[in-house]
């Protein structure tokens, strides 16, 4: 098994006719993903190297049985494309687009939640289940199937750590980029729950970064709900303290959002935190072996 995407994924790409959409849509197909359709309003009837393009997601769903949507459309239209996929009955929506206004995401988050749709992103690299399917922009050739689940806020840092794990001889069940935006469809805790239930995943590497309190909440969740070991990495120890702009942020989260605060919260729950991507991979392989 694996989580979120696998051999049953039937992908429709929103924005397939665009530069990024066609590059990554076709790459995902080369990597073994069933890419069954593209959607670009006004370009219905065309095709991109054999992948049929439809005007609407609803048509793509009824014609091709698409069950997963990748969003690669420009920011002003991204939330609309997510909403359209949710309305069309798509079960998993993976939004890659960077720069989506957060107020748009507030509406779309609740729309997805109410419809029971799994939303990943936006501003994320997508989800890769090595050997099965890749939906998004993760360079699949660097990863092999294996027992470690990876969940990360950051795209490129995910590749870095996944790659280090691979060099240390450990493959991945699934690699999930949840995105670093303030409001994302799935948080660390949502993905940790999926990894806990996935028999192929033996342990999880969690990659966080400064800002918000998702890592602190994950620490609590792991302590209470996860039987599988978790190793963490936090980026941003040398990040300059941002200028204070009001205090309401610190009040609601009760956390300063710094890398040190996150590391402390995780370690307080017995979760080991690596100092660098390399050390994190080393600890993970050690935990897996032990």
């Amino acid at each position: 098994m694996s989580i979120i995407v696998d051999q049953d994924t039937r992908l429709v790409v929103a924005g397939l006719t665009g530069r990024e959409g066609s590059f990554h849509g076709l790459r995902n197909r080369e990597q073994g993903t069933e890419v069954v359709a593209g959607v670009t309003p006004g370009k219905g009837g065309q095709d991109v190297e054999g992948i049929p393009v439809f005007d609407t997601v609803a048509e793509a769903v009824s014609e091709t049985g698409a069950n997963t949507s990748m969003i690669l459309v420009p920011p002003p239209f991204a939330a609309g494309a997510m909403d359209e996929a949710i309305d069309a009955g798509i079960g998993t929506v993976i939004a890659i687009t960077e720069g989506v206004p957060v107020m748009d995401m507030l509406d779309t988050y609740w729309k997805a939640r109410d419809a029971g749709v799994r939303l990943i992103g936006p501003n994320c690299p997508g989800v890769l289940s090595p050997g099965k399917a890749n939906v998004g922009i993760i360079p699949a050739e660097f990863f092999e199937a294996g027992p470690i689940g990876v969940v990360s806020k950051s795209g490129t840092l995910t590749y870095q750590i996944g790659n280090e794990l691979g060099q240390a001889g450990a493959g991945n069940s699934s690699i999930v980029g949840i995105g670093g935006d303030p409001v994302v469809g799935s948080d660390f805790v949502d993905v940790l729950a999926l990894f806990e239930d996935d028999p192929e995943t033996e342990m999880v590497v969690m990659v966080g970064e400064i800002g918000g309190d998702a890592e602190e909440r994950a620490a609590e969740y792991i302590a209470e709900n996860l039987s599988k070991p978790v190793v963490a990495y936090i980026a941003g120890f040398t990040a300059p303290p941002g200028k204070q702009m009001g205090h309401a942020g610190a009040i609601i989260s009760g956390s300063s959002g710094t890398a040190q605060a996150k590391k402390d919260a995780l370690e307080a729950k017995g979760i080991r935190v690596g100092k660098s991507p390399t050390e994190t991979a080393t600890i993970a392989v050690e935990v897996l072996g032990g």
Partner: peptide, 10 residues
């Protein structure tokens, strides 16, 4: 990517 860049600084 912000994450990799922050990690690079570290």
């Amino acid at each position: 990517g912000a994450g990799l860049c922050m990690s690079t600084l570290d």
